[in-house]
């Protein structure tokens, strides 16, 4: 038997595994963006053919849809590993649990958040947004969706041992995502004329994401350690 060292660091191996599991059959990583499309498509039917109204509320619709689409797969973020016993192994790993959580969130965001960001300009067009404003919605989602995933990770960790924790997860974290939603929509709805500023809400959105990046893994790790006992 030959001795060998694993080729990858634990976190790189975890990231690769998460991406593989998400992309293969049953992973459901494309569900989020399809759900996003469905919500955006339904809105004009509900509101009617008023293009001026539609283009005015488009940033809000896109952000709300993005928020709900992000939420979609989050309840399984730790639950799948909890049920099949992988979480126990992550707890006995030499890698700090906080970094494990951060890596899982990064992989989850790449699978669900990033497609939303890529699809947002296209869906903005469907809601009659002016073409020159589309970059703002994409940029605000790019900066804001990681915060949504990270805040969601806290809820996912808290509800990890509940069989039907999905709804509780939504109730727990939607209030916490209100600041992200407010400043995300504010940044996306800014106008060229400067009547509604872009830089201020954008910088606050960046700050919220950085805050979630630091705080959420610690909070989620504490919740997961409790879940085992």
């Amino acid at each position: 038997m030959t001795l060998y060292r694993p080729p990858r660091s634990p976190l790189a191996a975890l990231f690769l595994r998460e991406i593989r599991v998400g992309r293969r059959i049953g992973g459901g990583s494309m569900l989020g963006v399809i759900f996003f499309l469905v919500l955006v498509t339904l809105t004009p039917f509900a509101i009617g053919p008023d293009l001026a109204l539609l283009s005015r509320i488009a940033p809000a619709i896109l952000w709300l849809s993005g928020l709900l689409a992000t939420l979609l797969g989050l309840d399984r973020l730790f639950q799948a590993d909890y049920e099949d016993g992988s979480l126990d192994l992550m707890l006995t790993s030499r890698t700090p649990l906080e970094l494990v959580i951060l890596t899982k969130c990064a992989a989850h965001w790449v699978l669900t958040g990033l497609p939303l960001v890529a699809a947002a300009p296209l869906f903005g067009l469907m809601l009659a947004m002016p073409a020159q404003d589309l970059w703002r919605i994409a940029l605000s989602l790019l900066v804001g969706t990681p915060a949504l995933t990270l805040i969601g990770a806290i809820g996912a960790a808290l509800t990890v041992s509940l069989r039907r924790g999905g709804l509780l997860l939504a109730v727990l974290i939607l209030p916490l995502s209100v600041p992200v939603l407010i400043f995300g929509v504010a940044a996306a709805a800014a106008t060229e004329s400067g009547l509604l500023p872009f830089a201020t809400p954008m910088m606050i959105l960046c700050a919220l994401t950085l805050l979630a990046l630091v705080g959420a893994p610690v909070a989620a790790a504490a919740a997961l350690r409790q879940a085992g006992s």
Binding site: P7, D84, L89
Partner: peptide, 19 residues
């Protein structure tokens, strides 16, 4: 602690790195 959609070798490679 196995992921059904990954192959046996992929599962073990991951666990080797993690543990």
């Amino acid at each position: 602690a196995l992921k059904g959609s990954l192959t046996v070798a992929e599962n073990l490679t991951f666990l080797a790195a993690m543990l």
